[in-house]
Write a protein that binds this DNA or RNA. Structure first.
Lengths: 344, 344
DNA sequence: ATGAAAGCGCTAACAC
DNA sequence: GTGTTAGCGCTTTCAT
């Protein structure tokens, strides 16, 4: 026994308890075929020796690891961090370990899937808010690892997300209901994605306007990479258009923040002169008094984790995807159109 | 061989290459005692079979796992997410896997260290921005796992962080240099911590004022939990004090954001009526035009990762702690005191 | 209900 | 330089 003092093995437990290795194993795993008396005896020794099974040996002997890979871009942004937090909570409660892989750009993505660190390391992978392409998915499936998407949709494997289209509609419809007809949109795209896909938050805008018989003015739509700075730039351009929009719909709180800063600099009052609505309802929105569509991020994480747990316990089964509802949270950044400019 | 089709073992590689298991192992690990020719032959087979060693078996046979635990509170906040991103990049480049543990409150902390998931699972643990107490540290040391702190200081083990005192001084001195003498402070404490420790960002404020012969007005100091909302509340109180401060020093960008929102609501112009400075220089600061002291977060992560890597390669050695410099980034939120109120 | 023994996939002496 | 052979710490038939 070349064991260091601090790490007792199952064999130690067995010896001290006066039973065989096999029995000790059964007792520890609550397996059948152990008398209650023996079980208690063994568990007592486990307690006394402070024994913890080596996960590596377990995995080797058993064939599965109780480990899942979490592939996530943009840690550092609220949405992604919260999502990870939600997943971690649920998984760690179930005794499943999380291997973290951060992929910020398409190259990281590619590298992850080619090196397949997941390979032989995990039983499942959770991809946060980005699609896994068909080939990648098949390779994973071949090695028997289940895949789940959190915060994004897929046709090929189970996911949990919000209905981005509905969320967008809630935001734009809110503006429309307030009488706004000239609405700017700050849309963002993800450079993480291998190829651009249809943006449901944008489509919501187009549909809502169309349904209200409002023609879309392309100069009011700005597509940009995520980031407050870009949003501020775009907002400055919006302010220059004629007639100036009376409202702005931002795809995310961060974009809205940049916009509001630009508005403040230009002396445009919110919501008197211009209304701003966004999607996310992050802490930012609260600090800012921003009207925003709330999406339950942590809960998405929790549910994704449960789906994975299910997949682990029933290999082969395919979980049903889940779409969580969103809810408009009205704060001070939106108001009816046409409020007469207050005289200072 | 009960191997599924998709997962070749080293034994498979050896057989196909026509060498023994041992030789295959040596070749794969670039160990000594393998002729270049055989090595190439083996590696070719590895390539062809798409072989990846089972980390579990490696660890079991070798005794170490090339896995480290990352213990982090408050994912979802920029600082923590960025730090994790920095660490991940470096560690994954070195082929070390990261086990993620999220601890949001003292209870999570306690649970982490008591269940010691690290136990037998990792070779090292990195604690982000929170102290590991002496007893916890000793238990970890006993099991031979190295511990490193990122984004926080410790006297008991190596760390990498910024000099919070210096950062605070840069912020407050900037205000002082602009002629401000009545300066409010928005300080935050961490409920993650087991016990409150001296806050260097606060001390910087007290010292700076003292050195300039300015008496501290306790009513200008507000301690709060992290969050823009709390900052907004505190700011409202600051505005009510008489005479009203001409500047606010916030411990973080998020706090400053809340403050600026409160100021906007109150019709107080920044920086004409009141200057705001903070610490972090997160993307928020840029979007907001906020003067802030930049701290290199990702770099702290990178360095922490390197320290761990060193510890893994030279067990027993104690890495030297590192303190990274910070730098004031002046934007539009600060200006000289006494600017005459512009007449609207 | 319990024990003996055969692996799981790999590394590391130890021979040759 | 290469092959043989024990294990690493656990799970799991298969006996008893």
């Amino acid at each position: 026994m070349r064991n260091e003092a601090g790490t007792p093995s199952l064999a130690d437990v067995a010896r001290v308890a006066g039973v065989s290795l096999a029995t000790a194993s059964r007792a520890v795993n609550n397996a059948y075929g152990v008398s209650e008396a023996t079980r208690q005896k063994v568990l007592a020794v486990v307690e006394k020796l402070d024994f913890v099974a080596s996960p590596d040996a377990e995995r080797l002997a058993r064939g599965s690891s109780r480990r899942v890979a979490l592939v996530v871009p943009h840690l550092g942004r609220w949405f992604f961090g919260e999502m990870v937090a939600g997943i971690e909570r649920e998984l760690s409660a179930a005794g499943v370990d999380i291997l973290l892989y951060h992929v910020d750009d398409p190259e990281d993505r590619r590298e992850f899937f080619s090196r397949l660190p997941a390979r032989r390391k995990v039983d499942a992978v959770i991809a946060i808010a980005f699609p896994v392409d068909e080939e990648e998915r098949q390779r994973l499936e071949l090695m028997g690892v289940a895949i789940t998407a959190a915060g994004g949709r897929s046709t090929d494997y189970p996911y949990v997300s919000i209905d981005d289209y509905a969320a967008g509609r809630q935001a734009v419809d809110h503006l429309l209901a307030l009488g706004h007809t000239r609405i700017g949109m700050l849309a963002s795209f993800e450079r993480t994605l291998p190829a651009p896909r249809e943006n449901l938050r944008s489509r919501a805008y187009y549909d809502a306007l169309a349904e209200h018989g409002i023609a879309v003015d392309p100069s009011l739509v700005h597509d940009m990479e995520w980031g407050g700075h870009n949003a501020a730039l775009a907002t400055a351009q919006l302010l220059a258009s004629d007639p100036r929009p009376t409202a702005i719909y931002a795809h995310s709180d961060e974009l809205a923040l940049g916009a509001m800063h630009a508005l403040a600099l230009a002396g445009v009052r919110v919501p008197e002169d211009l209304s701003v609505v966004a999607i996310d309802d992050s802490p930012l929105a609260d600090s800012l008094g921003l009207t925003s569509v709330r999406q339950p991020v942590r809960e998405q994480g929790t549910i994704a984790a449960r789906m994975v747990l299910d997949a682990l316990s029933q290999p082969g089964s395919t979980a049903a995807s889940v779409m969580l509802p969103t809810q408009l949270v009205v704060r001070e950044s939106t108001g009816p159109v046409g409020t007469p400019p207050a005289v200072p």
